[in-house]
Structures are given as structure tokens and as C-alpha cells.
Design a protein around this nucleic acid. Structure first.
Lengths: 313, 313
DNA sequence: TAAAAATACTCCATAGGTATTTTAT
DNA sequence: ATAAAATACCTATGGAGTATTTTTA
């Protein structure tokens, strides 16, 4: 025996848009035949449709006196609501297509504090102008927090600091900016007095440094630099935020190698210097640091692709 | 030959709620079979329905890899929108029933200035508390403007001044308040000096009066009162708003018989008095004036009935 | 090989059609 | 007499069913 379509499968008392469309047409024409014409149908099924709608609602929408049709109070109240519903339904396909090609949608972007000063604001402003229907959510977070959030799908992409060559597994990565490291010195440190600074002057200074766990290549590059000069750096303190590193330097805890953009943190008691390396000529240079946009590999949304197309020159 | 249902009659590219419901179910389960179960249907027609929706939109909503189902960017963007649409559609019947019994809806009420001071504010406040979903629109207007607006269906009801016994044609009418007339005197008028005032003192004073066109019975009652005392009143000026009448009295144009509630207009240069009639004992009294709520006969909306139920004792 | 989506078909519920009746102006 | 809504009945589209195949983890 064949099971017949279970009646409540079809619609658990959900009134279809068809009925609302027909209702609005009759309400606007106050005339079943004309409304039917407008709907490209004949009058009898329209009469039935309205009857069906009234039955579903359990109330009369029109006062029909064979010769004239008038809205009841409930009917009149429903007209604007029904119209609104239909307008929203009609807008969905448009919105869908806009979402598909990245014109609309939501982008949750995380960023580390250093890009928050210059790169990101300009980028975001330009993007917003061009794509007003994309809703941008910006969250400041450290690199490790961002990577976890990406893994859980809580953000669409993140701006992180990383050193050249480091490729997080499972993530796609686009270079945004490359910058040299500079040294942050406590203002009261004797070295801050002179305008120029050589690597050899720094070798004995205690270091405030980014944890290796987060940015191994930066950590290693700094160690390699000291090593080449015959020294093992003395780490006074690790800190995971540039803000904190600068604060620690300001407190005189030590000196720190930080990306150039950290200079934006104008903090009294801290001076920044570009040190000369002793053997620059021989090809050894101050190590650099890169800011990249990372996202879960293979799931770049159209909106994200649009966003990346705005990458500053 | 029988005409077959014209294809665009059924729906001019309007995607029915059924498809959105099914889409949301699949998006939530990310599993066609489970989603079908939740929808009380089988898997194959659900697969077809999603295919149909995707065809209508012209884009993919799910990445299906036989073994796993994932939302595309467009699909993910659509989920909250579709959910919202469904929620609104589900709310319509509830709203309809609320409108039918007056729990929700819109009430456009006009009122003359005199009720705006005391009666109306208390009434409206009490009603709003009990029926928060009824949207009240209050418009101050003179009686004649209100009657025209009622005729054109621009307001649902109006508070007007009228004299006992006057019944506007085609309108239903409910008495709200009955009040006696008092006399408004210019402050510099000699009569204002004494606390008491008799009708005979007023007979020679020029009158500022409401036009007969608007409120014939009030006009006639005043004339009858003067007549009984053997005088024909001298009309200095007609004015259609109580505000204006009081202003004219203040300017010394004349005295005026106004409803008691007009005393609320505290205007310097105007005093109010309750005159003694010479022959009070014989049954002649100062004429009165009524405030009534009027509405188009036979079309009191449920919300209006609710409103009237709040008439102050 | 098992689980899940896709495909192929069958069927009937119903939206919409035509013909006719009713009723108020 | 006429115009318009209601009623009666018919048709066929398509949504949902069952059975089966395909695919990949």
C-alpha cells in the first residue's frame, strides 16, 4: 500500500506566499474579477483562494455583498504586512545573487594591533565605499587567537604578523606588507642618547621578545643575528602583544626588536632606532617581518575575494 | 480546446515559502535525509526541491560531495534571511487574529482642543497600557474638519463638541462628557470685577460665538436664552476654535459662552464666570454642551470598540 | 561495504480552468 | 438586465511517494 503525502508534511499551517499575493491583489482592486485578471488567472479559483486564506486564518478578510467588496478591519490591518512580506520574499533572490558574487554578505576580520593604525583603516574605508552591502565585523586579536578562531570558523580571515617563509598548515596566506625590524629602547637607557646604534651595542642588553610559540621565525631570526655576532641573547621577558612589549621597554625591562609599524605606538619613555649591523656589507641584514592576511584554505567567500582585491598597492 | 493553467499565473518567479522552509532545514541539518525527516517527508523530493530552488536563484546553495553537505557563501548568507522571512510569515496569522479582535491595529483619532487637556490624555494612557499593539494616531482638528475626514475615511473616530440632541447623519455617536457653559469675560470689563454675574448683566455685551454652521444647537440655545430675557444678542465675531474665541475675548472683542473645560486655557486678560439666570426656579437653566466620540456608522473597527470600552466612567 | 545523495518512475492533491447559478443593483 | 461573486465540476501540473542507482569515505 502506497503511503500518501502526509498532510502536515506539505505545510504545518504555513500560509504560502501565493495566498498573500492573491489577497493583496484583491485588497488593492476590491474586485475579484479585476484582481484575477491582474494575477493572470480567472475569477473562480481566486474566490476559492481567498476563502482558503480566510479559513486558514479563521476570520473574514473581506465583506462581500455580491456587488461590492470591502476590507474588514483585520483585512485592512493585514494589507501592509502582507505587502511587506512579499517585498522581502522578492528581495531574497536579489540578495542571494549579490551574496554569491561578494557584493553582499558578512565578513568577520580579525587583526593585530599594528595594522589597526594605518593599513586596515584605509583599506576598510575604500572597501566600504565600493561594497556598502558587505557587513564588515572587525575584531582586534593576537595572532594565536586568530588562528584558533579561523579553525573554529568564527572569523573569515585575519591579519597576522608572521616571518617570511612561515606557512600555517591548512591556511591560505597573502602577503600584505613587509617591514624591517627596529629596536625599541627605554628612554633612560644610555644608548637612547645617540642617534645611531650598532648591533654590538645591544648585545648585552636584556631582551623583551615575542614568544617563539607564536612567531618562531622572528624569534629564531633575532637569535641568529645575535649568534652571528657571537652572543647568546638574554631574554628578560616574553610578551604576546606589541602594546605590552612597548610598555615593558618603557618600564626599562629591556630592549626589543619590533616591526617598524610599532613606532606608531607613541609612548613616552620609549625611543626607536634602526641599528647598523657590523657586517652589513657581507649580506647580513636586519631581519624583517611580514603582515599577511590568512584564511581557511579553500573556503574564501566571494566577499573575501572582493576584499582581497582591495589590497593596497 | 481547454486552456491550460498559464505558467506565469502560478507565480511570476516568486519563490514559495515551502522552498525556503526546506532550504533552512537542510542548512541546519547539513544532511538531506535528516532534514527530510524533520520536514516529515522523504529525501528524494527534498533533493529535488533544493535543486529547484537553486535553479530559480541561478546559483548553488550547497556544496554536495555525496558524502557531505556544506553551505556555499551565498547559502550561508541566505540562511538568516530565509529564517527571518519564515518568522514573519508565521507571525502574520497571529497578527491577523489580534487585529480582528482589536488587540492590534491602527486607530486614527481626531480631537478638539478642549478634550486634549484632561479627558483624552488619561484615556489614551490607560488604553495604551492595556493594548500596546494598537498604534494610536492623534490629530487635533476642529469639528467640521473631523466630520469631513470621517466621510473620506481618513480617521477612524473623532472627539467633537456638540449639543444634546444633535445627531450627525451617517455617523454613530457616543456621549463622552456633558458640561455646562460658562461665560468668558475680558479682564478689563467692569463685569469681571464682581464674583457673581447675572444673565441680565450680559445682555448688552457683544458676543463672540461659535458659528451656527458647526454647532447649531449651541448657537440656538444661547440665542434662546437671550430671547427668553427679551433680548436679541449682538454677535461681534464668530470663531471656530475655542483658542481663538478666548483670544478674542482677551482682546476685549466681547464675551463668550464656552464649555466649562475651556477654563483650562489659562490666558491673562480673561476671567470665567458661572452666571445666575434670573428665573432659574422656573426650570430654565444655563444650556450645556456635550463632547462625543463620533465614527462612521457601521464601520467601528474592533480596535475602536476596544477603545470605546475605555470610556472614563 | 555502508551510508547518503541522485535518479527514475508513479500517483494524487490541488491550483487553476470552464460552465453555470445566484444575487444585488 | 447586468455585472459580479459563488458554486459545480473538470484537468493536469507538480510535489511527494517508492524503488533503485551512484558514489565516496
Amino acid at each position: 500500500m502506497k503511503k500518501q503525502p502526509s498532510t502536515d508534511a506539505r505545510a504545518p499551517h504555513l500560509i504560502e506566499l501565493r495566498l498573500w499575493r492573491q489577497f493583496v491583489a484583491v485588497a488593492e482592486e476590491l474586485h475579484f474579477s479585476r484582481a484575477a485578471q491582474r494575477l493572470n488567472m480567472t475569477q473562480p479559483p481566486l474566490t476559492q483562494a481567498i476563502a482558503q486564506l480566510e479559513a486558514a486564518l479563521g476570520l473574514r478578510l473581506f465583506d462581500r455583498t455580491k456587488r461590492s467588496v470591502q476590507l474588514t478591519a483585520a483585512g485592512a490591518a493585514l494589507v501592509p504586512e502582507a505587502r511587506d512580506l512579499l517585498a522581502r520574499a522578492a528581495a531574497l533572490p536579489v540578495f542571494a545573487r549579490a551574496s554569491a558574487d561578494g557584493e553582499a554578505g558578512r565578513l568577520r576580520l580579525a587583526f593585530v594591533s599594528t595594522v589597526g593604525f594605518d593599513v586596515l583603516p584605509r583599506w576598510v574605508r575604500a572597501f566600504r565605499e565600493q561594497h556598502p552591502k558587505v557587513q564588515l565585523e572587525l575584531i582586534e586579536a593576537t595572532g594565536d587567537v586568530q588562528l584558533e578562531a579561523l579553525g573554529r570558523g568564527e572569523i573569515d580571515a585575519g591579519f597576522i604578523l608572521h616571518s617570511p617563509g612561515f606557512a600555517p598548515p591548512g591556511l591560505a596566506c597573502q602577503l600584505i606588507a613587509r617591514e624591517a625590524l627596529v629596536v625599541a629602547l627605554p628612554g633612560q637607557n644610555a644608548l637612547a642618547a645617540s642617534d645611531t646604534l650598532a648591533l654590538k651595542d645591544l648585545l648585552e642588553q636584556p631582551l623583551v621578545i615575542f614568544p617563539r610559540r607564536i612567531l618562531p621565525s622572528l624569534y629564531d631570526a633575532i637569535f641568529a643575528m645575535y649568534h652571528a655576532a657571537g652572543h647568546l641573547p638574554r631574554v628578560a621577558q616574553e610578551a604576546i602583544q606589541m602594546q605590552t612589549i612597548v610598555n615593558l621597554v618603557s618600564a626599562g625591562i629591556g630592549v626589543a626588536w619590533v616591526p617598524d609599524s610599532v613606532r606608531q605606538f607613541q609612548r613616552s619613555g620609549v625611543v626607536y632606532r634602526e641599528p647598523r649591523l657590523a657586517n652589513k656589507g657581507k649580506g647580513q641584514a636586519v631581519p624583517g617581518c611580514e603582515t599577511s592576511l590568512v584564511w581557511a584554505a579553500g573556503v574564501a567567500s566571494p566577499a573575501l575575494l572582493r576584499f582581497m582585491a582591495f589590497a593596497p598597492g
